[in-house]
Amino acid sequence: MNIGEITQTIEGKVLCCEDRLDTEVVTCCASDMMSDVLAFYSASNGVLITGLVNPQIVRTAIMVDAVCIIIARDKKVDDTIVNLAKDNGIVVILSPYTMFETSGRLYEAGLRKSKG
């Protein structure tokens, strides 16, 4: 599944790096605890779904080589986050759904957590 298809599946709004929507993603992680993401999520080309909105969601994504961040439930996202993501080529998508439903839609569409 690529990031463009992910955006359609969750009826999301892309906030930056629109030129990267054809990037294929291979895994996904949903968490509000960034330390858990850092501890258990070690695959590159992944998606991070979170309900948090602070710059550390982008830094965490950078450290684990994620290519896309989905922010659940249409939150207000400030420019610091978008600019940091843009500088690092990470697509940020705003989802109108809760973290549960965002995850569920993507799972139903075939996205899985990678092994290992």
């Binding site: 509000d32 605890m33 960034m34 330390s35 858990d36 850092l38 979170t50 948090l52 550390q56 969601i57």
Partner: peptide, 12 residues
């Protein structure tokens, strides 16, 4: 509330 401080940092 910012996503850290769960006692996972040092073990990580």
């Amino acid at each position: 509330a910012l996503g850290f401080g769960a006692g996972m940092g040092l073990p990580n």
